[in-house]
């Protein structure tokens, strides 16, 4: 897939919601992920230059947060006198958030979750890219095994959880396995799709120039497939976080999911809310970290897109 300016604006026909790479045109929207770029680009915001542009961009976008702030303030005010069991005042939640997660012991749950996630996600990412690349390289084998892969892919991985618990018991290996099993697919399928999308002409050129396989991979295959590999990795990240929590909710003695579940069973609703908020924050921080990495890795691509969009 050559990065033509309008390519990602078409809904992709692939299996995962993928063809989305952040653009430079619109800081807040782009920082917050997804297919936003083409709209930012089309809405014709005049790009300025350098730091002044960044500052101006930040300022002109800051007002947009009013709605976000309003929602939070409304929640605070409306829940202030709440006597509902399920929706305690936001002030109490904030207080309890500080007591348990910052001053208290619950941090160990957070680290436990993050550790499993980090290991599982890394394995899923590496395996996903590797297997995707192999399936691309050996297309006939890939074709033959595709129905089996597809079937495993569409089984909701959570359904496998009880079986995996029965096989592996409760523990780190079970959690990591479930994260890998669920998170590997988007990366793998997007790697395969991205590599299939490389122009055959480029590969033929490499062959004519007698480039070594390594050089071909480095200068043609990887750059060509990178935008889609990153899209797959981002999707994998979200699924990885979900499965991290699900595995802790079903069978565990530690982790954020366990904390939430345990608070829920004690009917400590305020504490349960703090767990939910921590989970939400962790999920979004991981996503934003990923976007930051993606911008570095795909800097050349984003730059090329910006030039094309201006032209």
């Amino acid at each position: 897939m050559t990065p033509s300016p309008d390519a990602p604006s078409r809904p992709e026909t692939g299996r995962t919601a993928s063809a989305d790479v952040p653009s430079v045109a619109d800081p807040i929207v782009a920082a917050a992920t997804t297919p936003s770029q083409q709209f930012a680009a089309r809405s014709g915001r005049a790009p300025g230059g350098g730091a002044g542009r960044l500052l101006r961009g930040l300022w002109s976008n800051l007002w947009r947060l009013w709605f976000f702030v309003t929602v939070l303030v409304l929640w605070w005010v409306l829940s202030a006198d709440s006597t509902s069991t399920f929706f305690p005042p936001l002030r109490d939640i904030a207080q309890s958030l500080y007591d348990t997660w910052i001053a208290g012991e619950a941090r160990s749950d957070l680290w436990s979750s993050l550790r499993h996630f980090a290991v599982g996600y890394t394995i899923a990412g590496v395996l996903g890219v590797a297997v995707g690349a192999l399936l691309w390289k050996f297309q006939r084998i890939g074709h033959a095994v595709s129905p089996v892969l597809y079937f495993i892919y569409v089984i909701p991985t959570a359904a496998l959880l009880p079986a995996i618990v029965a096989i592996m018991g409760i523990g780190s290996s079970m959690k990591i396995t479930i994260i890998v099993l669920a998170a590997i697919w988007p990366t793998m399928l997007n790697t395969l799709d991205g590599m299939r999308g490389i122009e055959p002409l480029r590969l033929d050129t490499a062959r004519v120039l007698h480039m070594s396989p390594l050089a071909t991979v480095r200068s043609i295959v990887l750059p060509g497939a990178m935008p889609q590999i990153m899209a797959g990795l981002r999707h994998s990240l979200q699924i990885g976080v979900i499965m991290m929590v699900v595995s802790e909710l079903i069978a565990s003695r530690e982790g954020i999911g366990f904390f939430i579940l345990e608070a829920q069973q004690r009917f400590a609703i305020t504490e349960m809310w703090t767990g939910i908020i921590v989970l939400a924050v962790v999920g979004s921080i991981l996503t934003f970290l990923f976007i930051a990495v993606e911008r570095v890795v795909l800097a050349w691509y984003i730059g090329a897109r910006a030039v094309e969009q201006k032209g």
Partner: peptide
């Protein structure tokens, strides 16, 4: 969108 939906399940 970045918040894992599953966070809301216990509630």
């Amino acid at each position: 969108k970045t918040v894992p939906v599953i966070a809301i399940l216990p509630l």
